[in-house]
């Protein structure tokens, strides 16, 4: 990056952060700061982790992990009775592709809104972008948002109705009909879904306005609540200019379900990683206890580097990061 572009990126980032802080402060959200190093993580088998060693003359040494998201600590604050909170947090994801859309260390804006659900979070996020965006932001990166359910997108772009394909065998048949050659008969429903979605849907999503893609399949396990009347979760992702920028849940607060998620996801993680030298993080087996007192909450995570890219109309993440990872490891 040239010096002049670097300075512009730094100034834009500073302006955007300050606008967003003002926005949330005016709404009485409390800015919090939680640790980047943690002795346990929320199990997520698809996210690779960084580990490091705590050493001390007085205490036993311990393995610590760089957080892939501040969720683990922010939810703890909510359970302790905090009001709605937000944070700009450095997050770390190992093994991610180094390139135009990823940097292994990146900044997440995460906000948890009490007494709100994922639909309320759409309104809040729209208002936030409308009131805080950079001066020269292109109109395709600004509200009003478009909204579409994952199933409507699947029906529209590849004629697959997920409600009718709840079994992997049925989805597999569809994938073969669509011409995918690498799909496996015995793989997970989620894998087959991802192959179809990433090949035929994601590249064709409208890009003229930010898009809220909601109601993700319940087979993609995560800490969002299930919709009671359909096989989908109360979860959305926001795409801006075709790039995934945000993720939102109606937060799961049923402690049995959280415990069940922890057990299932951790066993997947261990099974997939035990024969390799990938990091297997410790988890807190009692984490679900914080959900004894957890209010109705919706949480949103926004990749700030990607949000900046859209508002500066830059298609490479390295154009908004002063010291991109690919430069510093050279």
């Amino acid at each position: 990056m040239k010096h002049i572009d670097k300075l512009k990126a730094a100034k834009n980032r500073s302006t955007l952060y300050s606008n967003i802080r003002n926005f949330f402060n005016q709404k009485n959200y409390l800015e919090v700061e939680t640790p980047s190093l943690s002795p346990t993580l929320i199990p997520e088998s698809t996210i690779e982790n960084f580990s490091t060693q705590f050493t001390s003359e007085f205490l036993p040494s311990k393995e610590l992990y760089l957080i892939p998201s501040p969720e683990i600590f922010m939810k703890q604050l909510i359970s302790e009775g905090f009001p709605s909170i937000y944070q700009f947090s450095k997050c770390f994801r190992n093994s991610e592709q180094i390139g135009k859309q990823h940097n292994i260390e990146f900044t997440m804006l995460e906000y948890y809104s009490i007494n709100m659900d994922e639909q309320d979070s759409i309104e809040l996020t729209s208002e936030m972008i409308r009131k805080t965006h950079l001066k020269d932001c292109p109109s395709w990166a600004l509200p009003p948002f478009r909204k579409m359910s994952v199933n409507d997108a699947m029906k529209q772009y590849c004629d697959v109705d997920l409600e009718k394909c709840q079994k992997q065998s049925l989805l597999y048949e569809k994938a073969i009909k669509l011409g995918l050659s690498n799909v496996k008969r015995n793989e997970s429903w989620e894998s087959t879904f991802n192959r179809i979605f990433l090949t035929f849907v994601e590249p064709n999503l409208p890009q003229d306005k930010p898009l809220i893609l909601d109601n993700y399949p319940k087979q993609i396990d995560c800490l969002a609540t299930n919709d009671k009347s359909s096989p989908f979760k109360k979860r959305w992702e926001m795409y801006i200019g075709g790039l995934e920028v945000a993720n939102c849940y109606d937060e799961l607060k049923d402690k049995e379900k959280v415990e069940e998620y922890y057990k299932k996801e951790y066993s997947t993680l261990i099974r997939e990683r035990s024969l390799t030298n990938r990091v297997i993080p410790d988890i807190d087996h009692e984490y679900h206890e914080i959900f004894n007192s957890f209010p109705q909450t919706s949480g949103v995570a926004i990749g700030m580097d990607r949000l900046l890219m859209s508002q500066m109309n830059i298609d490479n993440i390295e154009g908004v990061i002063l010291f991109p990872f690919s430069d510093i490891i050279r």
């Binding site: 698809t46 991610e96 859309q101 011409g179 192959r195 990433l198 993720n247």
Partner: peptide
Amino acid sequence: FVNPGKGSAFVRLKLKNPGTGQILAETM
């Protein structure tokens, strides 16, 4: 390369059969 929000790493490929000119989209 694509990493869906809650998913493992995929590669989205565009392939061409030079004999027939057929273009194939595939995600692995």
